[in-house]
């Protein structure tokens, strides 16, 4: 079986071509814009990592108040309760709703934190030697990309509850400030993930192969 990592392939840049990242049409390096979709053409996005880190920072910053501030404000007849995310989970576990608690815990805490870590790892692994192969990292990136769109599930729950439970004085559920922060955090994390240029995962392989054999070419 062929070791894909060691395989030196001819890359588009090596061929003097540049592919449109939007519609995948290949253009000569000189072209500035894709004539088909009008997207800007660049062989490599030189500001990719910088943008990743910028969005990543904002996302983390937004994630802090999202956990400290109350996610839900529940008013019943006599009382008003505010629950943070973790507080809500604990509350649910006290009510023996362990399954839901796990779902919420995973969706609201586990996944966002995992995304932060994954993005940070990907961004760092561009310049450094990593334990994971390029393929694994590509897969990781795709997972992050894929999962990102589901990360708003908490916000959806809050929005639905707020819409449904409006029984005036008797009971009402309103979104807390944390929901906004959480939504922002998700958005910024997605932006951060989008800003990452996955081609940089492979560039490193090409360079190391060229310095070893010289005949390998990126595709």
């Amino acid at each position: 079986m062929r070791d894909l990592g060691k395989d030196i392939a001819l890359t588009a840049r090596d061929a003097g071509l540049v592919a449109c990242t939007r519609c995948q049409r290949v253009w000569p390096m000189a072209e500035d814009r894709c004539d088909r979709c009008g997207a800007r053409l660049a062989s490599r996005d030189t500001g990719s990592l910088s943008r990743v880190w910028a969005w990543w920072c904002v996302g983390v910053m937004a994630y802090i108040p999202a956990n400290l501030w109350p996610m839900l404000v529940t008013r019943t007849l006599m009382s008003e309760s505010e629950d943070t995310i973790v507080g809500g989970v604990i509350e649910l576990m006290h009510h023996d709703a362990v399954g839901i608690a796990i779902v919420i815990l995973v969706a609201s805490v586990g996944i966002p934190v995992a995304k932060f870590i994954a993005i940070a790892y990907l961004a760092l692994s561009v310049r450094r030697v990593t334990l994971l192969s390029a393929h694994r990292r590509q897969q990781l990136y795709e997972i992050v990309e894929y999962i990102g769109r589901w990360s708003m599930i908490d916000v959806f729950v809050v929005a639905i509850l707020s819409a449904l439970v409006q029984l005036n004085v008797v009971a009402s559920v309103n979104p807390g400030p944390a929901s906004l922060a959480f939504a922002l955090s998700v958005i910024f994390t997605m932006l951060s993930a989008q800003a990452f240029d996955p081609r940089m995962i492979w560039d490193r392989i090409e360079e190391s192969a060229r310095s070893e054999g010289g005949e390998a070419r990126p595709a």
Binding site: T46, G47, S50, R51, A54, W55, C57, V58, M61, F188, A195
Partner: peptide
């Protein structure tokens, strides 16, 4: 080298 995006954080 620094992206304009940094303005956001």
């Amino acid at each position: 080298r620094v992206s304009i995006v940094w303005l956001v954080p």
